[in-house]
């Protein structure tokens, strides 16, 4: 478990994500958040972990903790197919630019989100978006991918998929 970017050349600078080491931490973050949000990318349809697609883990988390999801196509259709309805179509960077704006009132019109989970995008694309949020907003971000995303506030280290699945499964228990 190294705090090392998954793509070799992506070196972030002095400010780096804290490592997620257990499910308790994630649970505490979810509990503390007034309004969490999850943004899911299409790579979650390809990445298989312990015989299950990343998207299935993510949708289960969203369902269990009632976290609204933003996603693009074709992921949107796949999430609906998995029976989750609180899902909104929007592009990742567009979503980040909305979340960055404190005056945005979110999809329910009741106020902006204060915690953003993100996972399942091409590594660099997620990297850049997280960097935009890190530098230009005060929102807390958590990457749920099984590799290190240093521009998030919190991220898993680049780790064995089984270890990742163990922590996520605990969160789902």
């Amino acid at each position: 478990m190294k705090l090392e970017p998954y793509q070799k050349a992506e070196i972030p600078g002095p400010s780096k994500a804290f490592a997620i080491s257990n499910a308790k931490l994630l649970l505490a973050k979810i509990k503390k958040a007034k309004k969490p949000l999850m943004i899911i990318g299409h790579k979650s349809l390809e990445l298989e972990i312990n015989g299950k697609l990343l998207i299935d883990y993510l949708v289960e988390i969203a369902k269990k903790y009632r976290i609204p999801v933003i996603t693009s196509t074709p992921t949107y259709l796949e999430i609906k197919r998995r029976g989750y309805e609180t899902v909104y179509p929007m592009n990742l960077i567009e979503a980040a630019s909305m979340v960055k704006d404190p005056s945005w009132t979110g999809f329910d019109g009741k106020g902006n989100y204060d915690l953003v989970f993100i996972a399942g995008f091409p590594y660099y694309y997620e990297w850049l978006t997280l960097s935009g949020l890190k530098h230009f907003s005060s929102i807390e971000t958590i990457s749920l991918d099984p590799y290190y995303q240093p521009h998030a506030s919190w991220s898993f280290p680049t780790m064995k998929k089984e270890e990742w699945a163990k922590i996520i499964n605990e969160l789902l228990e």
Binding site: G13, P14, S15, T129, S131, G132, H135
Partner: peptide, 21 residues
């Protein structure tokens, strides 16, 4: 909407400068 690759600027010898947040 800006998305810096890294937190630094390394354009001149004053730097590197940390521009985080």
């Amino acid at each position: 909407f800006y998305m810096p690759f890294c937190d630094l600027c390394c354009f001149c010898t004053y730097g590197k400068c940390d521009l985080t947040k």
